[in-house]
């Protein structure tokens, strides 16, 4: 079934699954997953399998809608991200990761960004007692390891897909740079892009910054009001969050989003109100927070975004076996 107003760029599923390109990308994907597990386990992380549903999920941002599930008469949500469960798991598993499937009904206009899917996966990492810098170093180490592993193990797949290894030369030298959100806003305005200083960097702005770079780089200190309530406000710079994004070079934009987490109960409740929500629905999480959630930092790395970056595909639907774009009816 095709909606004439939203024509699908996705071929019929059978055709997609049997194409040479899809097969090669899935072979790259399994190398990414193997390298991720190998690298994180080698650093003492434990892999857990994430929950799929719960009474609440990550409220997220940028207008993505949550999906309801009828749990025996109770309204549950499909996970937009399992961030709240990651925090709750830290007392038993101080260094943990998921390869987590997530579902987000993103706004319709994201169907054509090449960077959004309705169903996607995150490499979701959380570290008890860690600072933002610790989490940034883990993200940098993980991405560098994954890229190096793929280049070493399946170079013929990348070249078959048209990706020249030279693209990753600067990345492999290490030392990802870092700039603040305020600095990024100033750069974008200097380039004639009207970026709002109080919001996340928009997709066009991310692509512009990303095109200027020769290796991935961090953007830190996003303003309060641009992220979920679980990002910790900087006590020394009120109004700024102790968080970061890792943006790819080459126009691919955000690969990773992370932060130091808010662990203080009263600050969490206040943060929930500041994001316009009723704390009542976060019952189980607030009970955990009241009893004491460890301080932590962590991040989510978009698996499909990393794959697109590795393979040079135009759109995320090309790097997933069962693609679903926001608002586009497909298999």
């Amino acid at each position: 079934m095709n909606d004439p107003e939203h024509p699908s760029p996705i071929p019929p599923l059978g055709e997609h699954l049997t194409s040479r390109t899809t097969r090669d990308i899935m072979l790259v994907q399994q190398e990414v997953l193997a390298a991720t597990r190998d690298h994180l386990r080698g650093q003492g992380f434990v892999e857990l399998l994430p929950p799929l549903t719960g009474p609440v999920t990550d409220p997220g941002g940028r207008g993505a809608k949550q999906l309801d599930v009828d749990f025996y008469g109770h309204r549950y949500k499909l996970m937009t991200s399992a961030i709240l469960y990651k925090q709750a798991s830290l007392r038993g598993f101080p260094k943990l990761f998921y390869i987590a499937p997530n579902v987000r009904a993103e706004p319709l206009e994201t169907a054509s960004t090449g960077r959004h899917l309705f169903e996607f996966h995150q490499i979701d990492v959380e570290i008890a007692g860690a600072t933002r810098d610790d989490a940034m170093r883990v993200a940098e180490g993980l991405l560098t390891h994954v890229v190096a592993h793929v280049l070493e193990r399946v170079p013929e797949l990348l070249s078959g897909l048209g990706r020249d290894p030279v693209f990753f030369k600067e990345l492999l030298r290490g030392g990802f740079g870092s700039r603040t959100h305020a600095d990024a806003v100033e750069t974008l305005r200097g380039m004639g892009h009207g970026q709002d200083a109080g919001t996340e960097i928009d997709w066009e702005g991310e692509a512009m910054l990303s095109h200027k770079a020769d290796r991935p780089f961090f953007v830190t200190d996003y303003p309060k009001g641009s992220r979920g309530f679980y990002d910790r406000e900087d006590p020394e710079n009120p109004g700024l969050l102790r968080n970061f994004d890792l943006l790819a070079h080459g126009g691919y934009g955000e690969l990773v989003s992370g932060s130091e987490r808010q662990a203080d109960y009263a600050a969490i409740v206040t943060g929930i109100r500041e994001s316009g929500e009723n704390p009542a629905k976060y019952g189980w999480y607030l009970k955990e927070a009241r009893e004491g959630i460890p301080e932590s930092a962590g991040f989510g790395m978009g698996l499909q975004r990393v794959l697109r970056y590795l393979t040079g595909m135009d759109s995320l639907w090309q790097v997933t076996a069962y693609p679903k774009l926001p608002g586009v009816v497909s298999a």
Binding site: G61, G63, G198, G225, E274, G276
Partner: peptide
Amino acid sequence: SSPGTFTEEILAQQIRFMRNNFP
């Protein structure tokens, strides 16, 4: 319904959140 709890900061942040999420 509850009217919701508001302080200066909660109102300002909710507005910023709206602008961020629904540009």
